[in-house]
Computed example of a mutant assay.
Amino acid sequence: MADYRTIDAGIGARSSAHIDAGLRTHMNKVYGTMSVGLLITALAAWAIANLAVTSTPTELMFREGQYLTGLGQALYTSPLKWVVMFAPLGMVFAFGAAVNRLSAAGAQTFFYAFAALMGVSISSIFLVYTGVSITQTFLVTSISFAGLSIFGYTTKKDLSGMGTFLMMGLIGLIVASIANIFLGSGMLSFAISVIGVLIFAGLTAFDTQKIKNDYIAHAHAMDSTWLAKSAIMGALKLYLDFINMFMFLLNLLGNRN
């Protein structure tokens, strides 16, 4: 007579192995999509920054020997700069509201469009900071992000309790950042950058664990559409963690032109 406990254990082991393999595929999709988004952002920011300045004299000098083109003046000195600044935030909320109605391909296209718009929004960093400091800060961010994401993926500690605290901190950070646009306080800017790095460091670990746990929780009842959309939403979360951590670190570590 068959030992059903042995059979059940064998089925359970195969099921667990199947989930582990699926989880690795899922996380590779998340990180791959996120990486493509970061590449699009970097290329868009670099391209716009190069189109925004010229050596040909115009009515607005940027610095010695360089002048803002019509595009540069529109993006950085006209009221359009406020639209460009806050448009990515609006797209994040729109994406969250529309993702259930979008196909997987539509959601991915939306994410890549968002990444391009983010590149336009942060393109001024190539005019404000030296190329060396941007590269160095990107490497520091990459190493930090990788370590934090690995921690979030491998730790046995439940990080869900951090979520509410981090989201409250994020809301306060956004309010303080908007206020400082008008106040222009150097001390407040420094404090915002330090707190911002800490918040997004915590969110990197928290979001990585949540992406992993969401997959495991739905592993027995998922479909390909859910899987694809879940990977894109996970990529968006980690993308935002990376970009924000990079920008705050750049404000702290970057050398200005």
Score class of each variant (00 low, 15 high):
residue 199 I to S: 05
residue 112 Y to K: 03
residue 189 S to I: 00
residue 109 T to V: 04
residue 238 L to N: 05
residue 203 L to G: 06
residue 130 T to V: 01
residue 70 G to Q: 11
residue 236 L to Y: 11
residue 118 M to P: 04
residue 241 D to F: 01
residue 257 N to L: 00
residue 17 A to L: 14
residue 69 T to Y: 04
residue 215 Y to N: 09
residue 242 F to L: 01
residue 184 G to W: 01
residue 2 A to P: 04
residue 252 L to A: 08
residue 126 F to V: 07
residue 69 T to C: 03
residue 117 L to F: 15
residue 243 I to V: 12
residue 122 I to M: 07
residue 34 M to F: 02
residue 51 L to G: 15
residue 216 I to N: 05
residue 133 S to T: 09
residue 226 W to P: 04
residue 69 T to R: 09
residue 146 A to E: 10
residue 240 L to Y: 05
residue 19 I to M: 09
residue 132 V to I: 11
residue 104 A to L: 02
residue 243 I to A: 00
residue 239 Y to N: 01
residue 64 E to V: 03
residue 61 M to K: 08
residue 250 L to S: 07
residue 31 Y to Q: 06
residue 87 A to T: 10
residue 143 I to P: 08
residue 249 L to Y: 03
residue 254 G to M: 08
residue 101 R to E: 08
residue 47 A to Q: 06
residue 223 D to G: 14
residue 91 M to F: 13
residue 99 V to N: 06
residue 61 M to H: 00
residue 4 Y to V: 11
residue 136 Q to L: 13
residue 238 L to I: 03
residue 76 Y to P: 10
residue 213 N to D: 15
residue 134 I to S: 05
residue 188 L to K: 02
residue 222 M to S: 14
residue 186 G to D: 08
residue 7 I to L: 14
residue 181 I to F: 07
residue 89 L to F: 14
residue 188 L to E: 02
residue 242 F to P: 01
residue 92 V to H: 03
residue 2 A to H: 03
residue 58 T to H: 02
residue 109 T to I: 11
residue 35 S to G: 12
residue 200 F to K: 01
residue 188 L to V: 08
residue 105 A to E: 13
residue 126 F to I: 04
residue 40 I to K: 06
residue 177 S to M: 12
residue 67 Y to P: 12
residue 85 M to Q: 13
residue 137 T to Y: 02
residue 12 G to L: 02
residue 141 T to V: 10
residue 144 S to L: 15
residue 231 A to E: 01
residue 49 A to V: 04
residue 257 N to S: 06
residue 180 N to I: 00
residue 147 G to N: 08
residue 39 L to P: 02
residue 49 A to R: 12
residue 222 M to E: 09
residue 34 M to S: 02
residue 148 L to E: 10
residue 70 G to C: 05
residue 50 N to E: 05
residue 45 A to M: 04
residue 146 A to Y: 09
residue 233 M to G: 11
residue 142 S to K: 11
residue 219 A to C: 09
residue 146 A to M: 07
residue 82 W to G: 04
residue 9 A to L: 13
residue 89 L to S: 09
residue 66 Q to C: 01
residue 115 A to C: 09
residue 52 A to V: 11
residue 2 A to C: 00
residue 236 L to W: 12
residue 153 Y to V: 02
residue 77 T to K: 15
residue 141 T to Q: 06
residue 77 T to Y: 12
residue 223 D to Y: 14
residue 45 A to G: 03
residue 146 A to N: 07
residue 246 F to K: 08
residue 193 S to P: 04
residue 5 R to C: 00
residue 90 G to A: 05
residue 121 S to V: 01
residue 63 R to M: 07
residue 77 T to G: 05
residue 27 M to Q: 09
residue 216 I to K: 10
residue 207 D to I: 05
residue 44 A to Q: 07
residue 179 A to T: 04
residue 17 A to W: 08
residue 25 T to G: 14
residue 214 D to L: 13
residue 251 N to E: 11
residue 208 T to G: 05
residue 187 M to Q: 04
residue 195 I to S: 15
residue 43 L to Y: 07
residue 183 L to N: 08
residue 250 L to P: 10
residue 148 L to A: 14
residue 204 T to W: 03
residue 30 V to A: 02
residue 250 L to T: 07
residue 29 K to R: 15
residue 3 D to T: 13
residue 131 G to L: 13
residue 71 L to T: 11
residue 189 S to N: 14
residue 187 M to H: 03
residue 22 G to D: 10
residue 173 L to Y: 09
residue 48 I to T: 15
residue 121 S to W: 02
residue 105 A to N: 12
residue 118 M to T: 11
residue 57 P to H: 02
residue 16 S to C: 06
residue 217 A to S: 13
residue 173 L to K: 00
residue 76 Y to C: 07
residue 32 G to W: 00
residue 35 S to P: 00
